[in-house]
């Protein structure tokens, strides 16, 4: 796992610590707790075209980025049958909540690899989380350009 956490915002750094202080089976339980606590997005909150499919994920995961009052809000949906993916989406939704656009853009792209889950979860899934992160960043970048 990377020695240097990089430029992690405090919220993500706290999540990283939360994972790393547990042994591997408990890290999975924590991921499950995140999966359970992915905020529901009430139907009709966003127009369908605002949702972006995360192609890197095996299951149908959609993300949307909203910028309000210089703060960025991340919305995500993922099916209950894909708790691992839901957990990753939830970590990003909670960890990036309320950050500024710049803080999100500065988030290290290898954050998913800093949670100590490589031995518990397949690389394919961690790559799914990386896909969510870069898509969020790209949407933030696009919002800034507008």
């Amino acid at each position: 796992m990377p020695e240097h956490p990089g430029n992690l915002p405090p919220t993500l750094a706290a999540i990283r610590e939360e994972f790393l202080e547990l042994d591997v089976p408990d890290r999975l339980q924590l991921l499950l707790e995140y999966s359970d606590s992915l905020p529901e997005v009430p139907e009709g909150t966003l127009d369908p075209e605002h949702w972006e499919r995360v192609e890197e994920c095996q299951s149908p995961v959609f993300i949307a980025v909203e910028t309000r009052d210089a703060q960025v809000h991340i919305l995500a949906t993922a099916p209950a049958e894909s708790p691992t993916t839901r957990g990753f989406a939830s970590i990003l939704v909670h960890g990036l909540h309320g950050l500024s656009a710049q803080e999100i853009l500065d988030t290290p792209p290898d954050f998913p690899l800093q949670l100590g889950l490589q031995n518990a979860v397949s690389m394919l899934r961690l790559r799914g989380m990386s896909g969510m992160l870069w898509r969020i960043k790209r949407q933030v970048q696009e919002a800034l350009a507008r």
Binding site: L28, E81, P83, G87, N119, V121
Partner: peptide, 27 residues
């Protein structure tokens, strides 16, 4: 399962989990 957390979200009573990724493969 393919999703290694799926068992933990609910499973058949009495069932135990075997994880193909971490338990059946040599590391």
């Amino acid at each position: 399962n393919e999703d290694i957390l799926l068992y933990d979200t609910g499973h058949i009573p009495g069932a135990i989990k075997v994880d193909w990724h971490t338990e059946l493969n040599d590391p």
